[in-house]
């Protein structure tokens, strides 16, 4: 049930939520599957992926955690700068539309509207 008058922010964020939840589902599935497949048999040979300056990870940690973490960072950056749309969040509800704030403004003698 949607309206043709629906705010563009609602529409764009709905699309973005689908994208974010899909990325999350992929990350969860990949991470859990890879860690379980490579990292839950302590009788298997312990292999390391060596990177630099003494930094090395057990193979399952590298493929199952470090790599998807780096990928998530890159995907997050792409999402933030190329997918997520900027939008006008709208005007703050003026204080004299808000009975509570109006009472305060009257008390403090601030007749003008305070806008967010």
């Amino acid at each position: 049930m949607s309206s043709s008058l629906e705010d563009p922010v609602v529409r764009s964020t709905r699309r973005e939520v689908v994208a974010v939840l899909s990325i999350t589902a992929i990350a969860l599935t990949y991470t859990v599957y890879t860690c379980y497949r490579l990292g839950f048999d302590s009788k298997s040979e312990l292999k390391f992926v060596k990177l630099f300056a003494g930094v090395a990870f057990p193979e399952w940690v590298f493929w199952g955690i470090v790599l998807p973490w780096l990928a998530s960072f890159v995907v997050g950056a792409i999402f933030a700068f190329y997918v997520m749309e900027d939008a006008d969040l709208g005007e703050e509800l003026a204080d004299d539309d808000d009975v509570f704030a109006a009472a305060q403004a009257a008390e403090s003698g601030e007749g003008e509207k305070h806008v967010g």
């Binding site: 974010v20 990325i23 860690c35 960072f73």
Partner: peptide, 12 residues
């Protein structure tokens, strides 16, 4: 693995 969810926390 316990903390891995934080990889997508900025996005979500």
């Amino acid at each position: 693995l316990w903390i891995a969810g934080y990889m997508v926390v900025p996005l979500t």
